[in-house]
Amino acid sequence: MARRAEPVRTCVGCRSRASSSDLLRIVVEGGELLPDARRRMRGRGAHVHPDLACLDLAERRKAFSRALRVSGPLGSKQVRLYLERFRPR
């Protein structure tokens, strides 16, 4: 039986490609980055590995602003809390 092809996305932090199920979708709402683990929130999304190193790299490169097409500073507190609580070990 053939498997259905899974979408491939690029991590905005490390720029490596991975299946979308291996990445965490991030959306912006009111200037704050929010984790969208269920992939149901509205709007443009950016993907990042569920790893604090990739999140730090994406912030340093200002990749979220470009990927989400927003200007100004973005807060990442909610994403950081999510990764600290639920990251795979």
Rank of each mutant, 00 (worst) to 15 (best):
E32T: 14
D22A: 14
L68C: 10
L24T: 05
L83R: 07
R15H: 07
V48T: 12
A63R: 10
E84W: 04
G72E: 09
G72F: 11
A37S: 14
A18W: 12
V12H: 03
D22N: 15
A53I: 13
R40D: 05
D56I: 07
V12A: 03
S65K: 07
A5W: 08
R9K: 10
L81G: 14
M41F: 10
P50V: 05
P50S: 00
L34E: 07
P73H: 07
G13D: 07
P35V: 00
K62C: 00
C11Q: 02
Y82K: 02
R44W: 05
G31P: 03
R85Y: 00
P7I: 00
R38G: 14
F64V: 11
A63E: 09
C14W: 06
R61G: 06
R25F: 05
L81C: 14
G43I: 09
L23I: 09
L57H: 01
E32Q: 15
E32W: 12
R42H: 12
V27F: 03
R87G: 08
D51C: 13
R4F: 07
L23D: 02
A53W: 11
A46K: 08
A58P: 02
R25D: 02
R17Q: 08
K77N: 00
R87N: 03
M41R: 15
H47S: 11
S71C: 10
G72D: 11
R69D: 09
H47V: 08
F86E: 13
E32P: 10
R61L: 10
A5H: 12
D22P: 05
R15P: 03
M1Q: 11
S71D: 14
A63P: 09
V48E: 06
G72N: 09
F86R: 15
R3N: 13
S20K: 15
G45L: 07
R39G: 15
V79F: 01
R89C: 01
S76M: 14
M41V: 13
D22E: 15
S71H: 13
R15E: 08
A18T: 12
L74S: 06
G31N: 02
L24G: 00
R39T: 14
A53E: 15
C11M: 01
E6K: 13
D22G: 12
R25I: 00
R89F: 00
E6W: 08
C11Y: 01
L74T: 07
A37M: 13
R17Y: 03
R17K: 13
R60M: 10
T10E: 02
F86D: 12
R44S: 05
V28S: 10
A37L: 13
R25T: 03
D22K: 15
R69W: 04
E29D: 15
C14F: 06
C11D: 07
P35I: 04
P88Q: 02
R66I: 13
R42S: 13
G30L: 03
D36Y: 10
C54R: 04
V27Y: 02
E59D: 15
K62G: 01
L55K: 01
L34T: 02
L55W: 04
D22Q: 14
V79C: 00
V12Y: 02
P50G: 05
R80L: 06
L68R: 05
L68T: 08
V12P: 04
L74P: 06
G72A: 10
I26G: 04
R39P: 12
P73R: 11
R42M: 11
C54H: 05
